[in-house]
Design a protein around this nucleic acid. Structure first.
Ligand SMILES: [Zn+2]
Ligand SMILES: [Zn+2]
Length: 660
DNA sequence: GCCAACGTTGGC
DNA sequence: GCCAACGTTGGC
């Protein structure tokens, strides 16, 4: 799976003239300027055994083990504010060319017509190219998997068998526990290797995380029907159930490791095995897996030759350890964050959690590396205390900003007995102090009432159901990605979960003002994402995150004027509004009414609310392109405003089109 | 049983 | 051939 391919807008990149559009697939890469700096050459590799000084930290994305599959799909050109929009202004030539090649063509959008369930989409002569109707606008209703027993949680996205089309709607599938899926059906149904082979990448956005039916551990669903976490799957495979029985009530598998097990036979299995092994430690979907850059500060990073380390540990950066499948997950990450925030130098952070006199496998002739520790000046007492604070107790935290200084507020529950790493992880965002609810009614743009009653979320869910929205809207808005952040997902959890328990006092505030690294920026964005998912955003907006990382805010309701609108927030909190995949010009007045950076949930919410007050320019009819029996097509002027006041039908440029 | 160390290997 | 980072293992 390649999250680079997450494409939220639908289809058309013709404005940038580089996409052949043959497939109609949407491939939207995060802009290069947002990626970690690439170092193009490797100043002579040095043997791993030789400690060396830091050779500028190289950030390289194609790392060894996990394969990051590519495909031949043409990448969309940057459409980001600072690049594309600016490019439009700065490079009129290129832009002009694009316009000539492909004017912004748009189908006359008629939401009400599309909304009617029976309405079929007329066959267009060259639909993907000419219609800019986004996937969010497409008639998706038929593709949803309906189930009488809808469970609010455990929702993920997938395409139905045989439904790999260019305009993929947001689709949901119910957790397999609710649906019987036979393996043959899956295989013949053309659901190739989800998540690896997803056509437009939309399914990558939503984590397919579920709970292992055997051990309850959260895990990433690798393919439809997965019910067990990696471990249990392994065991299951070693004692496979008869082919036709799919959901056998697994008798608590004896989880004894059987060493000399059945020898794998067949190259196919080997390959499969290899692939499985490669991906064993990464789900590819969690925030950690989405991170591209090493922090350079954790113990594993410090150990890396590129950071001047001696390459003894040879592990992936702590921050990049998968939230679900890594064996090094989380505990130390928390330590790092805390200590980072605390201003303690990175070198001190990850020294032993446990005092060990000697370490395994050291060759007798090697230097005693314990000395090294003394060089650094770390006393064990320091170390243990630091670790204890974080590890032994529940820790919630949230970012706050005040006078330009960013703080981490950590809630530490002293009564909490020692918790597992998973617990820590899942408790991370349990603190509802930072959780805010916006009423779905677009009012009071800048006031975010505190979440008081979890029921309100439930009520909202029901509301939306009654209003006839799509299934996705029956999920609490903003919830899909929150699997990662441990937010309670279904109604029951909302009621019975930690929200009802008063969260302890904020006991520590750490300043983060100092140097901001690439990974800090990643984390800050993740943090915003987490906050967004603890917030009920304005009606039917959801936040998803994709590789980069990039936060994307989508309006899920086709009834909204903003159904085709996506707000994307990048590292550094730059944001961009685009309509049907086309970025608004920087000069658009909506930008002047909001902060340049979407740092805070409030800013985002306010922007979304504001957007709801606008509508999308419908362009002007392109008569010559339409044969009488074809649907009426509209095009937009080159410099179309895209978003216009609600009472207008098209923007100034489209009402007096220059072309023709 | 834990984990530092390191052999190993997929991906490039 | 190099590198990232996985799985394994011996010392504790
Ligand atoms: Zn790191
Ligand atoms: Zn992951």
């Amino acid at each position: 799976m390649d999250l680079n391919e997450v494409g939220l807008g639908s289809g058309c990149d013709e404005n940038f003239g580089e996409d052949s559009m043959s497939s109609g697939l949407t491939v939207e890469l995060p802009p290069d300027w947002l990626k970690p700096m690439e170092e193009d050459e490797d100043n002579g590799a040095v043997g791993p055994k030789i400690p060396r000084k830091v050779r500028g930290a190289k950030v390289k994305r194609g790392r060894g083990r996990p394969r990051k599959p590519r495909n031949g799909i043409t990448n969309a050109v940057d459409k980001w504010r600072t690049t594309s929009s600016a490019a439009k202004l700065n490079h009129p030539k290129k832009h002009q060319k694009a316009i000539i090649q492909s004017p912004n063509t748009t189908a006359q959008t008629d939401h009400s017509a599309q909304e009617s369930p029976g309405a079929s989409i007329p066959e267009l002569k060259n639909p993907p190219r000419l219609t800019r109707a986004s996937m969010l606008n497409a008639d998706t209703s038929k593709r949803f998997v309906h189930s009488p027993s809808l469970k609010v949680g455990n929702v993920s996205v997938r395409t139905e068998p045989g439904q790999y089309t260019s305009e993929l709607p947001l689709q949901l599938w119910l957790h397999p526990s609710l649906e019987r899926i036979s393996p043959s059906k899956i295989q013949s149904g053309g659901l190739p290797n989800l998540p690896e082979a997803s056509c437009n990448g939309i399914s990558e956005i939503f984590p397919r995380i579920s709970e292992c039916e055997n051990c309850g551990t959260p895990f990433s669903i690798q393919k439809p029907g997965d019910k067990f976490c990696f471990k249990c799957r392994d065991k299951e495979e070693k004692n496979p159930s008869p082919a036709n029985i799919v959901f056998k009530k697994a008798p608590k598998p004896k989880l004894k490791k059987e060493k000399a097990d059945t020898a794998p036979d067949g190259a196919e299995e080997d390959e499969d095995d290899g692939l499985k092994k490669r991906n064993r430690r990464r789900c590819g979907q969690c925030p950690a897996c989405l991170l591209d850059s090493d922090c350079g500060k954790c113990d594993f990073c410090i150990d890396k030759p590129k950071f001047g380390g001696v390459n003894k540990k040879r592990q992936k950066c702590r921050l990049r350890q998968c939230k679900f499948q890594s064996k090094f997950q989380f505990r130390r990450e928390l330590i790092q964050r805390t200590t980072l925030a605390n201003g303690i130098t990175p070198n001190r952070k990850f020294k032993r959690q446990k005092k060990r006199l000697k370490r395994g496998r050291r060759k007798p002739w090697e230097k005693d590396y314990d000395d090294e520790e003394e060089e650094i000046g770390l006393s064990d007492e320091d170390d243990e205390e630091l670790s204890y604070k974080v590890m032994g107790k529940k820790l919630d935290y949230s970012f706050k900003e005040e006078n330009g200084v960013v703080y981490v507020e950590a809630d530490i529950d002293a009564d909490m007995p020692s918790v597992t790493e998973e617990d820590l992880y899942y408790n991370m965002s349990d603190s509802q102090d930072s959780s805010q609810v916006m009423d779905s009614a677009p009012s009071a743009p800048n006031v975010l009432p505190q979440l008081t009653d979890p029921i309100s979320s439930v009520a909202m869910v029901e509301d939306m159901n009654q209003n006839g929205f799509l299934q996705i809207e029956m999920v609490r808005v903003g919830s899909p990605p929150t699997h990662f952040f441990g937010e309670a997902l279904n109604a029951q959890q909302l009621v019975s979960g930690s929200q009802l328990e008063p969260t302890p006092v904020i006991t520590q505030i750490f300043s983060l003002a100092a140097t901001e690294t690439e990974s800090d920026r990643d984390l800050a964005l993740m943090e915003l994402f987490a906050s967004l998912n603890q917030t009920v955003l304005p009606a039917h907006w959801i936040a998803v995150i994709s590789r980069g990382p990039v936060i994307q805010l989508l309006q899920c309701s086709k009834l909204s004027n903003m159904a085709d609108t996506v707000v994307q927030i990048q590292k550094g909190f730059f944001y961009q509004v685009s309509v049907q995949n086309q970025p608004l010009l920087l000069t658009h007045s909506i930008y002047s009414q909001h902060p340049i950076y979407m740092r805070r949930v409030e800013d985002v919410a306010s922007l979304l609310l504001d957007l709801e007050g606008w509508s999308v320019c419908q362009g002007y009819p392109k008569l010559d392109m339409c044969l009488p029996w074809e649907p009426r097509m509209c095009v937009r002027a080159a410099l179309c405003d895209l978003i216009i006041p609600k009472d207008q039908e098209h923007c100034g440029k489209c009402s007096q089109p220059v072309e023709r």
